[in-house]
Design a binder for these strands. Structure first.
Length: 268
DNA sequence: ATCCAGGTCGGTC
DNA sequence: GACCGACATGGA
């Protein structure tokens, strides 16, 4: 099946550290799960391909394909230090992930690297859902044990995820409350979970709850912002986040994604 | 072997 | 607020 797409870059979108459950097969084919459905994806120019029968609506929603990127392009062009990222990553979009999966995966992401987070994602999915390779639900993890999670590679984060899964499965409407809340209130709630600080909270809100003013500051963002906007002076993570949120407002999350991936691939 | 990775936590000052 | 060391794991 083919879906015509404008301003979309599948590779940059899936390789930019938003989501950890997609693996690249060979050169261009990605295998993963969208809204509970296993899927293979590849792109040719202005067409996004899947196997026959995959619901278009789910693709459009997941990849945020209805959004006009022009306002983002305008910023990337006029904010001079960002221009190389805008040119190299045109079509990079923020994904609308499953809220629970985003919450869980970014608990695992702290003081960890992307490759290993992907490995843990795979271990969890294979252990709990061997047939479909979908990420385990909160109740699946809640009824597990710390020892099992440690054996799957979570390390010291195991009790953080277990505790959070138990809370979420016992309070089924809680994630929906976070979704409906304003950014500041939603962040307070996400920060209350164990193992979640400022940075992870912003990732969860940005990728799982569409709070697009969120501006996650990790080591890559901190380094690239020091270089581009602070003459390599040392600045705190708080200062970097406040700078980004004020400068880019409602588009801060999108700009952060271009900064992060641009820094990682070395164009900034 | 030491350092690093999409940091957080509990302690200090 | 700012700064500190500990924390599991595996790749470089």
């Amino acid at each position: 099946m083919r879906l015509p797409v404008e301003d979309f870059n599948l590779e940059a979108t899936l390789d930019s550290g938003q989501v950890f459950g997609f693996k690249k097969n060979g050169d261009k084919v990605y295998e993963g799960v969208i809204a509970g459905h296993p899927v293979k994806l590849w792109q040719t120019k202005n067409q996004l391909h899947t196997e026959n029968g995959f619901p278009k609506k789910k693709l459009i929603h997941f990849f945020d394909l209805g959004r006009d990127l022009q306002p983002i392009y305008d910023i990337l062009r006029s904010d001079v230090p960002l221009a190389p990222a805008g040119e190299a990553l045109k079509g990079l979009r923020l994904i609308r992930q499953d809220p629970w999966e985003a919450l869980a995966c970014f608990i695992l992401s702290s003081n960890n690297n992307v490759k290993r987070i992907q490995g843990i994602w795979k271990n969890l999915s294979e252990f709990f859902n061997k047939d479909t390779l979908t990420f385990p639900s909160s109740s699946q993890i809640a009824s597990s044990h710390e020892k099992i999670l440690r054996a799957l590679g979570l390390g010291y984060r195991a009790p953080f995820l277990l505790n959070t899964a138990q809370f979420v499965s016992k309070n089924p409407k809680y994630l929906q409350w976070i979704r409906e809340a304003e950014y500041a209130e939603a962040k307070r709630r996400v920060l209350a979970f164990p193992g979640i600080g400022e940075k992870v909270a912003d990732c969860v809100l940005l990728y799982g709850f569409q709070k697009q003013e969120a501006f996650p500051v990790d080591v890559w963002i901190l380094r690239v912002m020091r270089k581009l906007y602070f003459k390599n002076r040392k600045i705190s993570e708080d200062k970097a986040r406040q700078f980004g949120m004020k400068r880019w407002g409602k588009n801060a999350g999108y700009i952060q994604q271009y900064l992060f991936h641009g820094a990682r691939i070395g164009v900034l």
